[in-house]
């Protein structure tokens, strides 16, 4: 099937991401922190803890709790984002937590809590993926024991053509069918920890887009590791 979308509006290759920049230890007061920038989307993550969990009834003697909080700054998008939790930010906080849970060894911290705060200073689509990438660097930077670092990217299907890392412009194409598919993966086991879809795509296209995202995700995982090592280089 030939696609009408044979050249990307931003001149990228179909499997090419926007430029990525990652840095660990950007917030001094936090136990661990990181910045993750992909194109015009920037996420900052700060990790506090493990620390004592209050209220006490939320404590779990078997394992610790991972609390994630996703927040867009009021000036991060073209239209002012009303401060405070919204239906959207609550949902993204929840999926971020679920995306990170499979790798974090929470059994090491019974009755305690690890707090992850993700703030987005500028957003141009793919913000939840940038948030997850930043959060996993920050968790590692905080010395939390974890099996691996989760990586995330959004893939898209524009008129049957699979493209990696949609930007704002592509997301808003109206004359073609656009599907936006954020994916998070554990690189060592290729376990998918987040998969959402917004738009229209066939089953085959969806499965194919996951396969195509895998090599890209592994490349991002390298960037994350480099960011952590950079901090201790001397």
């Amino acid at each position: 099937m030939s696609s009408k979308y044979n050249k990307r509006t931003n001149d990228r290759k179909f499997d090419e991401t926007r430029p990525i920049e990652a840095k660990a230890g950007v917030i001094k007061k936090a136990d661990g922190s990181a910045m993750f920038r992909i194109g015009k989307t920037t996420a900052y993550a700060a990790v506090y803890g493990p620390r004592e969990l209050h209220p006490k009834h939320m404590q779990d003697p078997k394992k610790g709790l991972l609390r994630c909080n996703y927040n867009m700054m009021p000036f991060s998008a073209e239209e002012r984002v009303r401060p405070g939790p919204s239906r959207r930010s609550k949902e993204i906080s929840m999926v971020t937590q679920k995306a990170l849970l499979p790798v974090v060894n929470l059994e090491d911290y019974p009755n305690a809590v690890v707090d992850v705060f993700i703030e987005l200073t500028e957003t141009d689509s793919g913000s939840r993926c940038a948030g997850i990438c930043a959060a996993s660097i920050a968790l590692a930077d905080a010395g939390i024991t974890m099996k691996d670092m989760v990586v995330s990217i959004s893939t898209g299907i524009i008129d049957h053509q699979i493209v990696v890392d949609l930007d704002g412009e592509e997301e808003h194409i109206t004359d073609l069918d656009v599907a936006d598919i954020p994916i998070a993966m554990v690189p060592s086991t290729e376990e998918i920890t987040l998969l959402q879809m917004d738009g229209k795509a066939s089953k085959e296209e969806l499965l194919k887009s996951i396969e195509e995202a895998k090599p890209v995700l592994k490349k991002i995982a390298e960037t994350q590791r480099k960011a952590l090592k950079e901090k201790y280089k001397g």
Binding site: A140, D148, P187, S188
Partner: peptide, 8 residues
């Protein structure tokens, strides 16, 4: 060497 989570 400095190692990070997930590194083989």
């Amino acid at each position: 060497d400095i190692v990070v989570p997930g590194e083989v």
